[in-house]
Design a protein around this nucleic acid. Structure first.
Lengths: 215, 215
DNA sequence: CACAAAATCAGGGTTCCCCCGATTGTTTCC
DNA sequence: GGAAACAATCGGGGGAACCCTGATTTTGTG
């Protein structure tokens, strides 16, 4: 039985590398590649992969949101999170979103194979080094109300914020999400009110700090 | 003869520490403190210090611009640059702006005293570790056209960009700089054209990358 | 000195942003 | 199970921002 895998990473060279490495294994097939979170969602619907290898930092829809949405539609799909950072916010949010594995990008490739094999048995796989973060977080148990973007903003609002901080205008965001400009304006107003931030510049900085977009 | 010093750093706790340490020396007097570049410029006019200890990353007007403007009015004032980064762009721009010393913030305090004494003799003082960057830069001699904000934008444009990326509206920037809104609009248009960036979000990211503002 | 670049400002038209309000559906909670 | 809170959707109107054209003054450079 062959494993169908979907690669989601915004850097083509990374996808190329992963695809080549993965396809050396006879029982693994890379069914498709997505260059942003939204495409990952669409291709998940179309291809019904067994596993999605998902970068966290991606334009349009980030890996965490994409994971959330894919799993809400297809709880059977396994997600392997790939990240450059061991930031505890990312780790815990990704796991909360339902990812089955969390790997750091500086790990050896063989670890990805190990992770995939592990999660296909229904277990969770974490990069060495990530485990510590998880334990730490478990102990603190979200005690210190971190009041981050994930608790303050709704899913839709985070989506809008990410698109805005990627440089899209209200109009473009509206077109992108297929809703009216007025809707996006309301979202933006709500976001700004909730965060008590009232300029695009500072909103962008906030989004960068929270990992919704990158420099 | 007592040395009159002006401290310019946006963190009060840093200024407090430096002031205390500096005033242990009988021949040194901290004449004033500025919390941003513009205040540094104003206090330089008012106090006519011998030395300005200048942080690079400051709101409103950054340390590099402030240095440039102070020295254009008072070439006799000595500037000691204090920075968290050994980024070669900052070093070379700060030296081009006319700073007499460049210190990293993780240096020992005694080094600041050494630097001040050195520059009062008319010499240049560089943090160990910075020297290498300078030499490197000297060898490359700005060869690879780095096309940074410093060559592309005018002084005034950088000022406007910094204020914008700090979250100020066009109106606020205009009021702050005592010019008409139309002037700022022109600057903004020119900045966006020169950089080929057409949203406040991406402009903010650019400003962060170039060190004009911080997260 | 001539020329270029930078900084300043204006008018006018278009678009966008912001403050009000409104509807519908979902979740939560007593 | 209805009240309450939240989420997502849209609209009007007024002020702000944006874009284009054009103009003056100062500054700097060959």
């Amino acid at each position: 039985m062959t494993l169908k895998i979907l690669l989601a990473d915004d850097h083509k060279i990374v996808r190329d590398g992963l695809r080549t490495l993965l396809e050396k294994h006879d029982d693994i097939m890379v069914a498709g590649e997505a260059e942003d979170g939204r495409e990952a969602l669409q291709l998940s619907r179309k291809l019904q992969p067994d596993v999605v290898v998902m970068d966290i930092a991606m334009p349009d829809l980030n890996g965490i949101e994409a994971t959330r949405q894919i799993l809400s539609e297809y709880p059977g799909i396994k997600i392997v999170a790939l990240s450059m950072h061991s930031d505890k916010r990312f780790v815990s949010e990704m796991l909360k979103a339902g990812a089955s594995a969390y790997l750091l990008k500086d790990c050896a490739f063989e670890e990805l194979i190990t992770a995939i094999r592990t999660i296909m048995k229904g277990k969770i796989y974490l990069s060495p080094g990530i485990a510590g973060v998880v334990i730490e977080n478990y102990i603190k148990r979200d005690s210190a109300g971190e009041a981050s973007v994930f608790s303050l903003l709704s899913e839709r609002e985070r989506e809008v914020l990410q698109l805005m901080s990627e440089g899209k205008s209200t109009k473009e965001v509206a077109a992108h999400l297929h809703v009216s400009i007025k809707t996006i304006e309301t979202h933006r107003t709500n976001i700004m009110t909730k965060l008590d931030i009232h300029s695009v510049a500072e909103l962008t900085k906030y989004a960068i700090r929270e990992g919704l977009t990158t420099l």
